[in-house]
């Protein structure tokens, strides 16, 4: 549905992206994952024909976007990073305006707008000025706006940026619903690893160029990531460390400030339950279990180009100046910032 090949964009002496190549299949949710300044927005803006590339090609829904931008734009619903609704228009007027702008026939505008208002639970606010909506509701309206002409492709640039955790979750759920129920192809840019892991079928890690592409779990496996897990215990003991080491997939274990710190290899979703079951069976009183995202570890490994299988202690702060990977408090979200 989206074919991007060899994209290059320079802003004066600065090369924003170079040789960006990837493809997104029909009905797929594809994430462009990278720190700020990695070229995500530039790539998105080229795909939706807002800026031209210096080299490369973009094909959207079978249309060459560089040769026929008007036709390609018709197939794309675009959500820029900044809120993109008109505050002095009502929710309904916003949707009606964009429906007409994209050439939706007059008779279809009303029913289509009503359906979107229902889908996005905005019916009760249809006649309210968009400026009076909360940030989360405005983002919901912006996504509805991007869908109003029923495009097969949806480009979402940092759709949860600046939202509180509750609104961010709502938006993520909506993106998944739109992809599954409406059959849209979604290209989503984010620096939020948790979001990428939760929402995307496949992810491309970008930093000026595409560094890696694959399913989130594949990326973690490909990078041979060891995921650190911290188990807080009411009764820590060396015996429990030995029990942990006996569990398949646990490569190391030690006690640290009353916590059992283990490193896992393979799929943490299957190893963590086995580890906790073994510890409970051995008499452990578990207070909490914390682990970082395996994608987060893969991301850091790929972006830094560091040694494979490099392990970090869980939930810590990145050591380099470029990447700050942390587990967001309360939300369990891995966030990468540059």
């Amino acid at each position: 549905m989206i074919e991007v090949s060899g994209l290059v964009k320079r802003y004066g002496p600065v090369t924003a992206i170079e040789g960006v190549t990837f493809s997104v299949g029909s009905g797929e949710v594809f994430g462009l994952l990278g720190p700020n300044g990695a070229g995500k927005t530039t790539t998105m803006r080229i795909i939706c024909c807002v800026i031209p590339p210096d080299a490369g090609s973009v094909v959207v829904a079978g249309v060459d976007a560089l040769r026929e931008p008007s036709r390609a734009k018709q197939s794309i619903g675009y959500l820029p990073e900044v809120p993109s609704v008109y505050g002095r228009l009502t929710v309904r007027e916003n949707l009606e305006f964009f429906a007409r702008l994209y050439g939706v026939p007059g008779g279809e505008v009303g029913p289509r707008v009503s359906r979107l208002l229902r889908f996005f639970s905005l019916e009760g606010r249809a006649d309210q000025l968009a400026s009076r909506l909360s940030r989360g509701l405005r983002q919901r309206l912006a996504i509805a706006r991007a869908l109003v002409h029923d495009p097969p492709v949806l480009l979402l640039d940092e759709p949860t940026s600046g939202l509180d955790p509750m609104s961010a979750r709502e938006v993520r759920d909506l993106v998944v619903r739109v992809a599954r129920e409406e059959g849209k192809t979604v290209l989503l840019s984010t620096h939020n690893l948790f979001e990428a892991e939760q929402v995307c079928d496949r992810v491309a890690i970008i930093r000026r160029t595409i560094l890696a592409v694959g399913r989130p779990r594949e990326l973690a496996e490909r990078a041979s990531i060891r995921v650190p897990v911290r188990v807080a215990l009411a009764n820590p003991s060396e015996g429990l460390v030995r029990v942990a080491l006996s569990v398949q997939g646990v490569t190391s274990a030690k006690l640290e400030s009353g916590e059992l710190v283990a490193e896992l290899e393979g799929d943490p979703d299957s190893v963590v339950p086995e580890l906790s079951a073994a510890l409970v069976e051995a008499g452990a009183k578990i207070l909490s279990i914390r682990r970082t995202s395996s994608l987060e570890e893969a991301f850091i490994s790929v972006v830094r180009g560091g040694p494979r299988g490099r392990s970090r202690s869980g939930g810590g702060v990145g050591e380099g100046p470029d990447v700050d990977a942390r587990t967001a408090e309360g939300s369990g979200e891995g966030v990468v910032r540059a």
Binding site: C48, C49, V50, S70, R71, K73, Q74, I76, Y78, P80, V82, P83, S84, V85, Y86, G87, F98, L101, Y102, G103, R145
Partner: peptide, 14 residues
């Protein structure tokens, strides 16, 4: 200033 020009540039308008 409000950032809405971006969606107009992405719309099928010359």
């Amino acid at each position: 200033e409000r950032g809405t020009i971006e969606v107009l540039l992405a719309a099928p308008l010359t």
